[in-house]
Simulated assay, not measured.
Amino acid sequence: MSFEPVTYAERPSRVTGAVLWTRAGGVETGPVYPVLPDGCMDLLWTGGRLLVAGPDTRAYRPESHGAARYVGIRFYPGTAPAFLGVPAHELRDRRVDLADVWPSAEARRLTERMDAARDPAAVLESAALARADGSPPPDPLLAHVVKSLDAGRSIASTAEEAGVNARLLHRRSLAAFGYGPKTLARVLRLQRALALARGGLAYAETAAVAGFADQAHLARDVKELTGVPLSRLLSPRPVRTE
């Protein structure tokens, strides 16, 4: 017996900062890898359902997907709440039907369009673009927070450069990212470390460059956020499906 291989592909979306991704193929015979925290939120479609994947504070472990086909749009950190119309913290560590977030008739119409489309990825991207056109422009504070924390700057200096106090920064972060700036900084640091390690950098060097105190600190943080050791995450590379 043979199986069609599972394929995953992504490309930059026409929605600013977003990524459009697809997943299709046969039955997975190996382990189902966790979806790791990345500061993002996704809107995804699979066979008659539109789902919202909220911001994760820990690894999400999906059930085996079989031969399911997925199409999704992954929003840049902090931008999904304006598209969805709800604060990010209400969706933290959750997967919910779009009809629980949008008016049910609107969610149903988009689902029907996706189900009938020859190219559901194009339909999803067009819907996201149309909704983005009617939303307020991105808040420059949020882009500053992501850029600053991703560069390894402290929360205090991030707030000071933005001209806000720590309490306001925390409140704005909850609504935009789903959690406070401390958790966002940990998630972004995790992603930096994974990118460096996947590029072949030794673990000790990865820890230093990514902003960890040492390799032991890197190992602890990876285990706390993902539930598995760093070595298991690197081979084979997991792909996001929700």
Rank of each mutant, 00 (worst) to 15 (best):
R74F: 11
A175P: 01
T158I: 12
G72E: 05
G180W: 01
G78H: 03
L149E: 06
A166Q: 13
L174E: 00
A128Y: 04
H65Y: 14
K147E: 15
T111A: 14
V101G: 05
A68M: 13
S64K: 14
Y76V: 11
L124E: 08
A128L: 06
P181K: 02
A195M: 09
R69S: 13
F75L: 08
I73D: 02
L142V: 10
D150W: 06
E125G: 07
A195K: 15
K147M: 03
R153A: 13
V71P: 14
E63G: 11
E90Q: 15
V187Q: 08
R167K: 15
G180E: 03
P62S: 06
G180R: 02
D115K: 08
P77D: 08
V164C: 02
R186C: 05
V145Q: 08
T158V: 15
A195T: 13
L149Y: 09
I155S: 05
I155V: 15
N165V: 03
A143R: 09
P77T: 00
S173E: 01
S104D: 07
L188A: 01
E125A: 04
A107E: 07
A151W: 11
R186I: 00
T158W: 12
G78Q: 03
R109W: 09
L168Y: 08
R172C: 05
F83E: 13
A80W: 06
P138F: 01
A107K: 07
A132V: 05
D97M: 11
R171C: 00
L110E: 01
R131F: 05
R171S: 15
L168E: 15
A82C: 04
N165M: 10
R113W: 09
P81T: 02
A99S: 14
P138R: 04
S148W: 07
E112W: 07
R108C: 04
R167T: 09
A82D: 15
A128N: 06
A143S: 12
S64H: 13
Y76Q: 11
P103V: 07
S157R: 13
D97V: 11
G85L: 11
A151Q: 14
W102S: 09
A195N: 15
G78R: 05
D133H: 13
D97W: 11
I73N: 05
R153M: 13
L188H: 03
A159Y: 02
V71H: 14
G66R: 10
R118I: 09
A122W: 00
A105Q: 11
S157H: 12
A159H: 08
L149P: 01
A156E: 14
E161Q: 15
V146T: 10
I155M: 06
A166E: 14
D119C: 03
V86S: 03
F83G: 04
S64M: 13
L184V: 01
S173A: 12
A143Q: 06
S148P: 12
L84E: 06
L174Q: 07
L169Y: 04
I73M: 04
D97I: 06
D93T: 08
L142P: 01
A162K: 12
R171V: 00
T111E: 14
Q191F: 01
L84F: 04
L84K: 00
D100G: 11
A59I: 06
R113M: 11
S154V: 02
A197C: 10
V96H: 00
S135F: 05
D115W: 02
E63L: 15
V164D: 07
G72W: 08
A127H: 05
P181L: 03
